[in-house]
């Protein structure tokens, strides 16, 4: 194979890996949108909040340490050596479920039957609130995230691919980050688990029923409030996974919440109600970005990666507003 072609494959693979992250965040959006018609602006911040909480637990930080110092004058930033990752994960998930519960109790419950725009505004408020809460609880400094995932380039893959190039050509193999690979594997496992859950459990069936026709769901005795707690918990779980993977890559910091902005074009591409759409949309944008950067970038002076997704989304809005997989509307008389 020619080195050019191998370079293309490398770019493509790296694009796929980046796309996985976008898919994950978009997935959180889709879950909530399908079940409640709410566009959850706070999804990105939820990922940040989850990651902060996880690191906080792991490293044994005392929540609200600065607040405590300000009020009581006692300085307790750490309470010990931290805890095993697995325990921290479980506790963080507990926090995300509690959050889902509180959101339903304090916000959603009071806004049922309101226009979608009002609910959207409420989620903007929620985003600000969570951001502040995250700061207050765990502090605003950048924290490294280490949950024991492998990272760094894979030598094995580099050596293997080096032998693919034609004899005598100047090619040293592909670079692929093992962190990206594990991220992809985790994401796939998450998606498979979610679809098994929604396909084969009574709760999953109820979730799909609510997505289809919430009035009918109400009429057969499905409690929408309970369903909301469940989907927000699921979205919290997805946010946690996204937060871990992204945080492991570039540290847990405020910019993590901005991945939500990248999810928007993914949603426009994939459709707001389609889980496969979110996944494929994320991958397309990841790959598209990297390829555009590599092949069109040099012609226009680079930095395509920052706006490519939005251009693609714009094109979709013009030509296919329902998205790639925009749920087929079954219409029968």
């Amino acid at each position: 194979m020619s080195p050019d072609f191998l370079n293309f494959i490398e770019t493509f693979l790296n694009g796929l890996m980046a796309g996985v992250m976008y898919s994950l965040v978009a997935l959180g959006f889709v879950l909530i949108f399908k079940a409640s018609g709410i566009f959850n602006f706070a999804q990105g911040v939820m990922a940040l909040f989850a990651a902060l909480t996880l690191v906080g637990f792991q490293t044994g930080q005392v929540p609200f340490a600065h607040l405590i110092r300000a009020i009581f004058g006692v300085e307790i930033l750490h309470w010990g050596a931290g805890m095993p990752t697995i325990l921290a994960l479980i506790l963080t998930m507990g926090v995300m479920v509690a959050l889902a519960f509180l959101i339903e109790r304090l916000v959603l419950k009071h806004l049922v039957n309101q226009a979608p725009i009002i609910l959207f505004m409420a989620t903007i408020g929620l985003a600000w609130f969570l951001e502040g809460l995250g700061d207050l609880m765990w502090g605003a400094d950048i924290k490294p995230m280490d949950v024991g995932l492998p990272s760094g380039g894979s030598f094995w893959w580099e050596d293997l691919t080096a032998t693919w190039a034609a004899q005598g050509s100047d090619y040293y193999g592909m670079y692929i980050d093992t962190l990206d690979v594990s991220a992809a594997i985790i994401a796939v496992a998450l998606v498979v688990a979610l679809s098994l859950f929604s396909q084969y459990t009574a709760t999953g069936r109820a979730l799909r029923a609510v997505a289809d026709d919430h009035q009918a769901a109400l009429s057969v005795g499905i409690s929408l409030r309970r369903i909301w707690v469940i989907v927000w918990s699921l979205a919290g779980f997805v946010a946690l996974v996204a937060g871990i993977l992204w945080g492991a890559k570039s540290g847990v910091q405020f910019s993590l919440s901005l991945i939500a902005l990248k999810a928007l074009p993914v949603l426009i591409l994939g459709g707001f109600t389609s889980i496969p759409g979110a996944i494929v949309g994320g991958l397309i944008i990841g790959v598209g970005e990297k390829l555009a950067e590599a092949y069109i970038g040099p012609l226009v002076g680079g930095a395509i990666e920052n706006w490519f997704a939005y251009m693609l989304a714009l094109a979709f809005l013009l030509f296919r507003p329902q998205g790639l997989y925009g749920e087929k509307i079954i219409e029968r008389i």
Partner: peptide, 15 residues
């Protein structure tokens, strides 16, 4: 008001 994307049997089970 059947759940359009669910099968008939899934519809029944939601009851």
């Amino acid at each position: 008001h059947c759940f359009g994307h669910l099968t008939i049997e899934e519809n029944l089970m939601t009851g």
